[in-house]
């Protein structure tokens, strides 16, 4: 019997019981033997019950812990880690083309200077809660909060297509701005005098994505020029304005109305950068944007079905 096996005693008991049955000299089992077997069975059953309960408690502990940890990681990344697809190793990075979003509150220090610590954290948390909800709704990976600033990227850990990432990123920014406008009244009623505005910037490009840090503390984040570009573009945006880089514009221009290119000199970039302002105020609900196209016949039509039915569109075109 292999005594390095955790269950060697139980296996030994089973073997012993088999031997009793296989013994040709035995015609019946004695009461003493039956008693011994019964006692062993009762012990094994008790052990099974104890260990099952122990294992269930360990499972519960793990569940509660996982539930706490999930709040520190973005949903797509959490899903990737817990499904075992993401190996948590340092130096494991890859080059991916992503769309990166930065936002911050205009004059946040001015807004916060008269607030008590608790009021400030309530205010900031309610703002971040609302914005994070929208980022998750659009499938963005929330990279980090830096005070009142938010950094989100699209395209990792789930890669769809460059256009899909850029579109979802810009739509998220529009939805955030719309929600903020709705919240102006709410915050005014809570006693905040000046409406809160944000600056938003988006850039698309190749970055290194993966685990950065030390073996004891890792951050799943991105580094690269497009990250700096998104941050710089954001810093140049006016109140309530969404500015996007030229490569982002190239991916969304057919679906999102934008301004002509504006040439900007940005800190840290030798050449002037072309940026565009997003001119759309509201995103059509998902699935409401309809499209009919046939390049061979020379037409391509996109319209918001929530505002204009196909019949109305036909009528409009025939006029």
């Amino acid at each position: 019997m292999d005594k390095s096996d955790v269950f060697w005693q139980e296996k030994q008991l089973l073997e012993k019981s088999k031997q009793v049955l296989q013994d040709p000299t035995k015609t019946e089992v004695s009461l003493a033997e039956y008693q011994e077997l019964l006692s062993s069975y009762a012990d094994v059953l008790k052990q099974v019950i104890q260990l099952t309960r122990f294992s269930d408690r360990n499972d519960k502990r793990m569940r509660l812990l996982t539930d706490k940890l999930r709040r520190y990681v973005s949903p797509p990344l959490f899903q990737k880690i817990t499904s075992g697809k993401e190996t948590v190793e340092i130096n494991k990075t890859k080059r991916v083309r992503l769309s990166i979003f930065f936002s911050d509150i205009v004059n946040f220090s001015w807004h916060s200077r008269d607030m008590e610590g608790e009021a400030l954290s309530d205010f900031l948390n309610s703002y971040l809660e609302e914005m994070t909800h929208i980022a998750n709704k659009y499938g963005g990976t929330l990279d980090k909060y830096i005070g009142d600033a938010i950094m989100v990227f699209f395209g990792d850990p789930v890669f769809v297509s460059d256009q899909d990432h850029a579109l979802r990123c810009v739509k998220m920014a529009i939805a955030m701005r719309k929600r903020l406008r709705e919240l102006h009244r709410h915050w005014y009623e809570l006693g905040y005098q000046k409406p809160l505005f944000v600056r938003m910037g988006i850039a698309t490009g190749h970055v290194s994505v993966g685990n950065f840090g030390s073996s004891e503390r890792l951050d799943y984040t991105i580094i690269g020029t497009p990250v700096n570009l998104a941050a710089r573009i954001q810093s140049m945006a006016a109140e309530d304005q969404i500015l996007i880089s030229h490569p982002t514009w190239a991916l969304v221009k057919d679906c999102i109305p934008c301004s002509d290119a504006i040439s900007m000199k940005l800190k840290g970039f030798d050449n002037e950068q072309l940026v565009h302002e997003v001119l759309l105020d509201e995103v059509a609900p998902e699935g409401e944007l309809k499209c009919i196209e046939n390049p061979d016949l020379g037409y391509s039509l996109k319209w918001d079905n929530s505002k204009l039915s196909l019949e109305e569109l036909i009528k409009l075109l025939s006029e």
Partner: peptide, 10 residues
């Protein structure tokens, strides 16, 4: 400690 360790604690 895991379940095997609990068994051996027993």
């Amino acid at each position: 400690h895991n379940t095997s360790s609990q068994k051996l604690m027993r």
